[in-house]
Simulated scan of single mutants.
Amino acid sequence: MRTATAGNEKVRATTEEAKGQAGETVACAVGDERVTAEGRAAQSKGDARQAEEKTKDVFRQ
């Protein structure tokens, strides 16, 4: 059974990944290496959260 909290965590992970990707794209366009790295880090963190939620889903079923 899927709870509201699980749905919220998935949305948070997707949002974090999208923010990281957008930040990386913008920073790359203007040539800011530090912000590009921060965008990559945020994107990776979002990917890790999504993987965590998918793993939880497997055990919830």
Rank of each mutant, 00 (worst) to 15 (best):
T55M: 07
T15A: 15
T5G: 02
M1I: 07
K10C: 09
K10D: 07
G7W: 06
R49E: 11
V58T: 12
V58D: 06
E24M: 09
T14S: 10
R60E: 12
Q50F: 03
R34I: 07
A29E: 08
T5M: 02
K56L: 07
A18V: 08
D32A: 08
V11I: 15
R2P: 05
A13E: 00
A4H: 05
E17H: 09
Q43G: 04
G39N: 01
Q61W: 06
G31L: 10
E38Q: 12
R12G: 00
F59I: 05
E52S: 14
G7Y: 09
K19H: 04
A4M: 11
T3Y: 07
E38N: 15
G7E: 10
D47Q: 15
Q43A: 12
G39A: 06
Q50C: 02
E24D: 04
A37N: 11
T15H: 07
M1K: 04
D47W: 00
V35A: 15
D32L: 03
A51C: 06
K10I: 14
E38P: 01
A6I: 07
T25A: 13
D57A: 07
A18H: 11
A29S: 13
A41F: 05
A6K: 01
T55C: 02
D47I: 09
T14A: 13
D57W: 04
K19M: 13
K56Q: 03
R40D: 08
R12T: 02
A4F: 07
T14D: 03
C28F: 10
K54W: 02
E52P: 00
M1G: 03
K45D: 15
T36A: 13
G7M: 06
G7L: 08
E24Y: 04
A18Q: 11
G46W: 13
A42R: 14
T14V: 04
Q43C: 11
G7S: 10
A4R: 09
Q50M: 14
D32Q: 05
E38T: 11
T14I: 08
E38M: 15
T5E: 03
R2A: 09
R12V: 07
E52R: 13
Q43N: 12
A48M: 14
A51D: 11
E33C: 05
N8C: 02
Q43K: 15
R40P: 00
E52K: 11
Q50A: 14
T3S: 13
E53C: 10
Q43H: 12
S44D: 14
V58E: 10
C28K: 11
E52Y: 14
T3F: 02
E17Y: 08
T5N: 03
T14F: 10
A4W: 07
V35T: 14
D32Y: 10
A6C: 03
T25G: 02
V11P: 00
R60P: 00
T3E: 01
D32I: 03
V35Y: 00
E33M: 08
E53V: 14
A41M: 12
R34L: 13
T36W: 04
D47E: 14
K19T: 05
T25R: 13
G39T: 04
E17V: 00
G31R: 03
F59G: 02
K45W: 06
G31C: 05
